[in-house]
Design a protein around this nucleic acid. Structure first.
Ligand SMILES: [Mn+2]
Ligand SMILES: [Mn+2]
Ligand SMILES: [Zn+2]
Ligand SMILES: [Zn+2]
Lengths: 137, 137
DNA sequence: TAGCTTATTGCGAAAAATTTGCAATAAGGA
DNA sequence: TCCTTATTGCAAATTTTTCGCAATAAGCTA
């Protein structure tokens, strides 16, 4: 279970599983699209203090629980590849819908080629697309 | 000339070519790597007020003179494809060096395939890579 | 289960980043 | 050179993010 992995990760690092952390994690897990920090602050403001949100989002990032997605104007946060399968986004600049897609083998090959060409050791990559979705076109 | 294009764009939009705008534009043009807003505020603080920097960076983005690059932690600004040829970045997470590279035909084909598959009209895309450069590996 | 240690929280306030109103300035057309 | 008005600098307001510290509670131990 995905939640179990989260719990294990925390205890391995001497970190406590608090209801606040669980809440934040679930908020991310249940969201169909990446969220801004502000989204998260507002969504949890009934029980979490903003400082708690900030502190834990920092922590999540350090632990590799989340990563930042730069779709649109500001960056957003979503569960990282360890908790959600690796994927990319298409953002409709008209209606704001976010479509997730998985990369092709061609892309992977291409990254590999680039890696070799520049002797660059790739640990991470992001591919974000903007445009208009089928509805809006 | 690249500067000419900038000037023309301004006048076409009833915007004035001020020394402040020119300064900002040049700062971007001369930078080998994308800059944060803060970089720009500091670099120009001898003659430009911070509000002038903010206001003009907003403007540049609206006009399509610049775009945001999400490399590393915070976003950075660089001249857009109209003023600098389309490219992508590799960021070394160790030494911070930014390597620009041009995309392959394979990537273009791949984007085309994705576009068709989802009936999504792609207007823009970004591909950012992180890892370690040849020096740091 | 009760007790203990200490990581974590909420709160209030500070610091940093971004935006705004307005009078003074200067770009650029007449 | 004069005039119109876009643009700037300045000071202050807002918004976002960070921080210190006392109160709380997670998780281990007996
Ligand atoms: Mn990928
Ligand atoms: Mn490209
Ligand atoms: Zn749409
Ligand atoms: Zn390096």
């Amino acid at each position: 279970m995905i939640g179990e992995k989260f719990k294990t990760l925390l205890s391995k690092n001497n970190l406590r599983l608090t209801s606040e952390r669980m809440r934040l994690f679930n908020e991310l897990k249940d969201s169909p699209a990446p969220l801004t920090i502000n989204n998260l602050v507002k969504r949890t403001s009934d029980t979490l203090d903003q400082s708690t949100v900030y502190r834990n989002l920092d922590l999540f990032e350090e632990l590799g629980v989340t990563h930042r997605v730069y779709t649109g104007w500001k960056y957003k946060v979503e569960l990282s590849d360890s908790f959600k399968s690796h994927h990319h986004h298409m953002l409709c600049s008209n209606c704001g819908v976010v479509i997730e897609f998985h990369e092709s083998k061609e892309l992977i090959k291409d990254l590999d080629r680039i890696s070799k060409k520049y002797s660059f050791n790739i640990s991470n990559h992001s591919l974000e697309i903007t445009g208009t979705c089928s509805n809006c076109s």
